[in-house]
Simulated scan of single mutants.
Amino acid sequence: MSIATMNTPTAALTVRDPWALVPSLGNLDAYITAVNRLPLLTQEEETSLARKWRSQQDLEAAGKLVLSHLRLVVSVSRQYLGYGLPHGDLIQEGNVGLMKAVKRFDPDQGVRLVSYALHWIKAEIHEYILKNWRMVKVATTKAQRKLFFNLRSMKQSLKEDAAEADLHRSTLTDREIDAVAGELKVKREEVIEMETRLSGGDVALEPTMDDGEESYAPIAYLADESREPTRVIEAHRRDVLATDGIAQALDTLDERSRRIVEERWLKVNDNGSGGMTLHELAAEYGVSAERIRQIEVAAMKKMRKALAEYA
């Protein structure tokens, strides 16, 4: 089956070997195109596959869960491209996190795999960045690597040639910078930048404890979570439920129940206060306040059911 035939809802996940449809990460563009064409699972399909994996250790079911979420890893990994690491490596680490999430996922907890997997995907990518942070910040090009490996020994040689009074200097003089740049055939600005990097301490990406309170660290803002696709989708879904969903749920109520709900929960006066109280509504309808409360409880229960069906 070719990638072009993967537009049907279950085509890609019902072939004998669906992994054959995903190219190697060596061809990154083809890989991303392929995983974006893999169909998403419905909640019922996801729950069924997850239960097969948990109860029967069905590897085929686990594979389908992983395949349907590969596009999520691609999306999350894009948020970390500014750290100088290959996109393919970030995706590969994220895929490891996705597989760990599938292994531990419990479909009976009422959470979709996409939400559960985000933690594991980001955790693996963060770990990869932490392991490579120092290397990335020190040397990223061939010229910088050459400068990195030679600058330390050249500084030592220059110090040995310097006067005894200068032996405790940690920085290079202008003459020494020119000498290093001439010897290694690089710009003096590159020598200054590399020396600054080498003399600087590592930055702690993980948060530390300070005076009993957790302090902020770069790991907290490696990615803007508000821009994550799942967060955007969730925010849009909440907005829809708060408008169209509420309106549709109100339509399921009789006139009296609807007015009670609107007065008790939806009306806000100019002074910031709500609508009518239980006693005020009771007086208007000629019943007890307890009866109004019972009508309100029944109406809210009916609305919750309508909202669940709408969602």
Rank of each mutant, 00 (worst) to 15 (best):
L41S: 04
L98S: 02
M154Q: 15
A117I: 01
E193G: 03
Y221K: 06
K137A: 14
G245M: 00
A163I: 12
A299V: 09
K155A: 09
G110C: 14
D211C: 03
I260H: 00
G272M: 00
I292G: 00
T277V: 01
V114A: 14
A298Q: 14
K187P: 06
L72Y: 15
A306G: 12
A298C: 11
D29M: 08
I177Q: 08
A181K: 06
L41K: 03
E127C: 03
R134N: 14
Y80H: 09
A50K: 05
E183R: 15
S170P: 05
L250F: 05
E309Y: 02
E193K: 14
N269P: 08
D211V: 00
M194C: 02
D239K: 15
R134E: 15
S77L: 03
Q144M: 10
G82K: 15
H236I: 05
S75K: 12
Y128F: 11
A220D: 10
L130S: 14
M154A: 13
Y31I: 11
H126M: 00
W133P: 03
Q109N: 04
A181V: 05
R51Q: 01
A11Y: 14
L25Y: 05
K305T: 10
I192E: 07
N27D: 13
V191E: 00
P229K: 13
N132A: 11
S273A: 08
S115W: 08
A181E: 01
I246M: 14
K301D: 13
